[in-house]
Design a protein around this nucleic acid. Structure first.
Lengths: 292, 292
DNA sequence: GCATATGCACGCGTTTTCGCATATAGGCCA
DNA sequence: TGGCCTATATGCGAAAACGCGTGCATATGC
C-alpha cells in the first residue's frame, strides 16, 4: 500500500485494458498511446500496492484484483454515460455533433435523401453516420439515434415506427422467365445463414425448391441474386431498388417494421428531434416503396 | 458541444466544487491548487458545451447541469470507495497505512497504551490516529476502524463490543465535602447542552438541583467540574482519571457501551484485524475501570 | 529454420498540466 | 470611507505526463 488513492482516469484505463486484453487495444479505446496505458496501469498498481495484471507473453492477464477494479470501473462508466446522455437530452442547440446509425442498405436506398435534406436544413450540425448492421450500444452512446429494421428487443429504448414493410421473392429477369415458363421446375434459393431453409408461405404452385447457398449478410444475398444464382427473399424496397424482378414464388408478406430508436435520455435532445422531424414525413411520403 | 468527453477526474473535480462551494475548499479536498480546480472546471464546461457554475461574487454556484454532474459523480465516488474498501479488505500485509478514529478522551485515558503496544508490535504499520468526536464516514474511508461510545446507528457497519460501562456523578473534593455535609443544599450541575436537564435517577436524598451551565463537549464539562463549577455526570473511566471525586448524588448506572466498528469490506483486512487483536484483550484486562 | 507479426519495455524530446506569485473585484466592519 | 478579508482571474517557470522511436521476446506461417 503506497497510500495515495488512484485517479479515476487510471481506473478507467484498467477497465479498458481488462476489456481489450492488450495495451494496444486499450490505448485505441482511450485514444492514447499504448505506452501511456502501461504507465497508468503501473501507477495504479503502485498506489494500490497490488498487482492488477500478470504480464504474459500474449498480453496483460488481469488478476482477481484487476477484475475487481474493472467491475467497479464498469459501474462508474455506466454512471458517466448516464450523465452524458442526460446532459445531451437537455441540449437545445442545433449545432455540433450528432451520430446516427442504420444498416448500409437502408442508408443507400432510403436514407440518403433524408441525410442530405437534414444537412442542408441544419448546416451547423456535424452529422456522423455509422453504416453497419451491428446493433450499436445506445446506452454507451455509440450512436444517438438508430434506424433499425425491427424494433429492438431487450433494452429500454424509446422508439417510433417509421413504416411497416413487406418482403417478397426477387431474382434476375432470366430466372423470372424460367419460373414463368416452368412453375414445376427446381427453384434455387439464396437465403440467410440464420434461417437455413426455404421461406415459409411459398406459393404451392411452385413445389420444387432447394437451398443453393446461404449467406450471413443481405448485401451478399442481393449480389448473389443479381448474379443469377437464384431466388432471394428480401424487403420490397430493396428488391425493387436492385434491378431485380419480383417473382411470384413468395407472395408479399409482412416483414420486420422500420423503427427509429434512441435512449429515452437522449430522445428529447433538439438535434435528435430535428432529425426525427425530417425522417417521419419522408417515410410517410415514400411508404408505397415498402408495401405491395 | 465541443465533442470530446470529459475525463472522469474532471467530473470528480466538479463534484468537489459543488460540495465545497469555493475553489479553495474543492482544491483542499482534492489535494491540488485551487487554480487547477478552476482550470478543470472550465475545461469540462468547454467539453460539455454547457455552463456548470455561475461565477458569483461569493463563489461558484452550480447550475442545474452542474448539479446533475455532481449527482452522477457522487455515485461514481461511491463505486470508487467500494472498490478501494474491497481491495483493502483483501490486503494481508502488516505494512503501510492504517487509520483509526476515537474520541479524544478515550484515546487520552484508555487507548494510548493500546496504540503504543500496536506500534511496537507492528513497526511497519504507519498508524494514523484521528482524535475527534465527529463520526467519520467509514464508507468514504475517512478512517478504517473507529472506537466509539455507543454502537453506531444507521450504517451497515460491522461491530465488536469492547466493554459495557457505567456513568456516575463527579465533582471536586470540595464539592464532595459540601454535599456530604449538607445533602439538602443546592447542587449545581454542569451538563451536556443536548440534554439541558439534570440527569434522571438522581438519589432522592439530594433533592435540590439546578443547571449551572451547559456545554456541547465533554472535555469542557470535565474542565468545568475540575474548576469546581459543579457536579457532572460522566463515564466512570473518565471521572476516575480526572482527579475528581465520585459523589453519591447520581448512583452508577448504565452508560453507552464502547464498540469497535468498521465497514464490513474493510473488517477482514490484516492490519484491521491486528489492531482488534490488541484492542480486545486490553479492554478485557481493564474492564473494572468502566464499571463500579 | 527463417521470416514475419504481435505485444511489451525503455529512453528521449515535446507537450500539457500544475503550482506559485501577482493582480483584481466585491463584501464587511470600524 | 478606508482597510481588510475572501474569492476569483492571469502569467510564468517547474514538473509531470505523453508520444514516438527503438529494441527484445514470443508466437505464427511458409
Amino acid at each position: 500500500m503506497h497510500g495515495m488513492e488512484p485517479s479515476w482516469d487510471d481506473l478507467r484505463t484498467v477497465l479498458c485494458l481488462v476489456r481489450g486484453t492488450s495495451l494496444a487495444n486499450a490505448a485505441g479505446a482511450l485514444g492514447v498511446n499504448y505506452t501511456t496505458v502501461a504507465r497508468r496501469v503501473r501507477r495504479v498498481e503502485d498506489m494500490l500496492g497490488q498487482k492488477l495484471f500478470d504480464r504474459l507473453a500474449d498480453g496483460y492477464q488481469p488478476t482477481q484484483a484487476g477484475q475487481m477494479v474493472a467491475e467497479h470501473a464498469a459501474r462508474m462508466e455506466d454512471d458517466a454515460n448516464a450523465l452524458l446522455r442526460q446532459l445531451q437530452g437537455r441540449d437545445t442547440t442545433l449545432r455540433g455533433p450528432l451520430t446516427i446509425t442504420a444498416p448500409q442498405l437502408l442508408i443507400a436506398h432510403v436514407l440518403a435523401p433524408v441525410i442530405d435534406q437534414f444537412c442542408a436544413t441544419y448546416p451547423e450540425v456535424e452529422l456522423h453516420v455509422r453504416a453497419t448492421n451491428d446493433l450499436l450500444d445506445l446506452n454507451r452512446r455509440e450512436a444517438d439515434l438508430a434506424i433499425r429494421i425491427s424494433r429492438d428487443p431487450g433494452d429500454s429504448l424509446k422508439g417510433l415506427r417509421l413504416t411497416p414493410q413487406q418482403s417478397a421473392s426477387f431474382a434476375t429477369a432470366a430466372w423470372a422467365d424460367r419460373i414463368a415458363a416452368d412453375p414445376q421446375g427446381m427453384i434455387d434459393w439464396v437465403v440467410y445463414a440464420a434461417y437455413m431453409d426455404v421461406p415459409r408461405n411459398v406459393d404451392p404452385a411452385y413445389p420444387n425448391h432447394r437451398i443453393r447457398m446461404t449467406f450471413d449478410d443481405m448485401v451478399a444475398i442481393r449480389a448473389a441474386a443479381q448474379a443469377g444464382l437464384g431466388v432471394a427473399r428480401m424487403p420490397l424496397f430493396l428488391g425493387r431498388a436492385s434491378g431485380l424482378v419480383q417473382v411470384p414464388v413468395l407472395p408479399p408478406q409482412p416483414y420486420a417494421e422500420i423503427w427509429a430508436v434512441a435512449h429515452p435520455d437522449v430522445w428529447p435532445a433538439a438535434k435528435v428531434k430535428a432529425f426525427r422531424d425530417v425522417l417521419v414525413p419522408h417515410f410517410r411520403a415514400i411508404r408505397d416503396r415498402f408495401v405491395a
